[in-house]
Design a protein around this nucleic acid. Structure first.
Lengths: 212, 212
DNA sequence: CCAAAACTTAGGGTTTTCCCTAAGCTATTC
DNA sequence: GAATAGCTTAGGGAAAACCCTAAGTTTTGG
């Protein structure tokens, strides 16, 4: 039984690496590789693979949202999230968005192939390391627990402007609202991220992948 | 003529990908792969390859400093920097530190092999894309120019404290200096990074790898 | 369809950051 | 061994961020 696999990743080096690694397996056929999600979406319309390896931190797209869309549109295609991030929040978000597995980029070839074969049958499969992250999280070492807060539309907008070094006055002008309103959103952002000031906010938001 | 190549990269996926890509070439032999720089250093003492592929953003080490050390210790080994960062400052820093080339992670296999063969002869070689980045920089689109500033001892200390969400007053107390002094260092940090406020400072410092 | 929850809006007052200026100290160089 | 450049130290005043409170608006759920 041959499993067709598609790969979507910004980095061609990882893309070629993954493709080469997989081509050595006799049970796996690389169906397509994409460095841009737009191309990927187009090709999937024509024919979609059994399994999709999906990078989380794409340059021009939100990997989590993309995963949700794809898993709904193509329920028979199993999605494996591939990421650098080892925070439980990312893992949980991807699994909630329909991913069947979550691999870190330091995964070995054996583990990669095992994962593909398992999710091909529709089962969920997580490597030990990833399972341990979730376990530790659910056991609740509260300090390690750093879930990504859910931001409102306004908060996201303002967070971006903050990261672009705009002052509250400038943001207020852009959004046609009062400075005081911007300050409120800003205070809420601090509270949601559990930080004390702008320095902590920017740091946390960057680590969460919300800004870059 | 066989070229021996070593690879140091945190991410096993990239490591295996690179190794597999290279093993297809008949002129190249993969001499060793390391995910930790400590292991790499030990093995190099025994026998060092002709060419080393070196990831810049290692978890537990500064890739730029490591490159400088290695190129001095093993002048006959050609170092190729491998990185996600396409900022000219990174490229220049790596070349100044003795790297013979600088590849982005979206480099194709052909380019990778060409690069290895060229630097093996001791020559410097940069792909078009990377050369263009340096060219644009030297032509001086000043906004794109973002080199990593050299920080003094005090500035580094204070930058860390800022990233840990401490106020100027708290930092002053820790360092037994006046608040006003801390503010001065802070202003100098803004100036050195070419940013307008704390948000920009933290963002730039994170992108420069000075804080995390 | 109405109550509860969540989001957006905003003011008053305090704290912190930022800008400009500048003096004393330290290391390097010629 | 004095000149020069760079680092550390601060102050006064202006701007921005932060905290507390709260009203109007939209969304959600029984």
């Amino acid at each position: 039984m041959e499993i067709s696999v598609g790969i979507l990743d910004d980095h061609e080096m990882i893309l070629e690496g993954l493709a080469t690694m997989l081509s050595q397996s006799e049970t796996i056929r690389v169906h397509g590789c994409w460095t841009h999600h737009a191309n990927c979406l187009e090709d999937l319309k024509k024919q979609c693979p059994n399994v999709l390896l999906l990078d989380i931190n794409l340059k021009n797209a939100n990997g989590i949202e993309l995963c949700g869309t794809l898993s709904k549109t193509y329920p028979n295609m199993s999605i494996i999230a591939v990421s650098n991030y080892n925070e439980s929040s990312f893992i949980k978000n991807m699994l909630r968005s329909g991913a069947k597995s979550y691999l870190l980029k330091n995964t070995s070839r054996e583990e990669l192939i095992t994962t593909i074969q398992t999710v091909y049958n529709g089962e969920r499969y997580l490597p030990r390391t990833v399972e341990n992250i979730l376990l530790e999280d659910s056991l609740g070492y509260p300090k390690l627990r750093s879930s990504i807060p859910k931001l409102t539309r306004r908060e996201k907008e303002i967070l971006i402007y903050i990261s672009e070094e705009h002052t509250n006055a400038e943001i207020a002008e852009k959004l046609f609202i009062s400075i005081k309103t911007v300050e409120s959103h800003r205070t809420n952002l601090l509270s949601k991220f559990g930080v004390k000031n702008t320095a902590g906010l920017v740091k946390s938001a960057m680590n969460a992948g919300l800004i870059s």
